[in-house]
Amino acid sequence: MFSLFESIGRYTLLMKKVFSRPEKMRIYRERIMYEVEALGLNSIGLTAIISVFIGAAITLQMSISLESPFIPQYLIGYATRETMTLEFSSTVVALILAGKVGSNIASEIGTMRITEQIDALEIMGVNSASYLILPKIVATVFFFPFLTIFSMLIGIAGGYVIAVVTGIMIPADYIEGLQYCFVMWEVIYSLIKIAVFAFIITSISAYCGYYAKGNSLEVGKASTRAVVLSSIVIMIFNLILTQLLLT
């Protein structure tokens, strides 16, 4: 229990250091653009592949589960949209990105720690925490919501394609279902969630890497710890945010 409080304390102090005034805004802007590419744009492919298949799978499953003359077919499109919007494109995509981006951040910063690159920055007088971590946080918090919107669209498109290809339902019914009872707040709720999850993934992974010690084995452990911790905290915050924003 003591170790948990110690970790929370160290994490808070690190975040205080991260959000202190940057040395030179121009350099940070350049680094943010670099991180948008490294952490955001490079995740588009993975997000697209997973979203299209999940969207298609949800549509298939719904068509099997809702196969009844008493249930209108457009509900399949409606269920696909709701699943993608409310949970998959924010929470599940965040869990996937925790694996990809989180382990990347933890291993990058952990390697910099054990090869004394962070010490070198400190010696130069650079606030290493802010220089290394702040651009990653800003990049992911601003870019991940776009990934979520992209995931929603491509997942829904995946459902449409499978409906057309397999002929399980009339495409017009699917489209009708997508438009049925559409609440904009659900999309906003999803975007708020992914922004919070982006902060969780980046800051926790950076924390695990920043305090890595020893050798390459420890960097590997820090990377695993980053993914596990981020995933657990994401699940907890998913509940909290749903309770706060949706009920």
Binding site: E23, I27, M112, E116, Q117, L121
Partner: peptide, 29 residues
């Protein structure tokens, strides 16, 4: 620290930056 230079055992150059970018970093900041 702006008056301090340090050479680390392994060099500690930033892996993601070129030699010129590494040397220029303190000037940039």
């Amino acid at each position: 620290r702006k008056d301090v230079g340090m050479i680390f055992q392994g060099g500690a150059l930033l892996d993601a930056s070129t030699v010129a970018q590494n040397v220029k970093l303190p000037l940039d900041l």
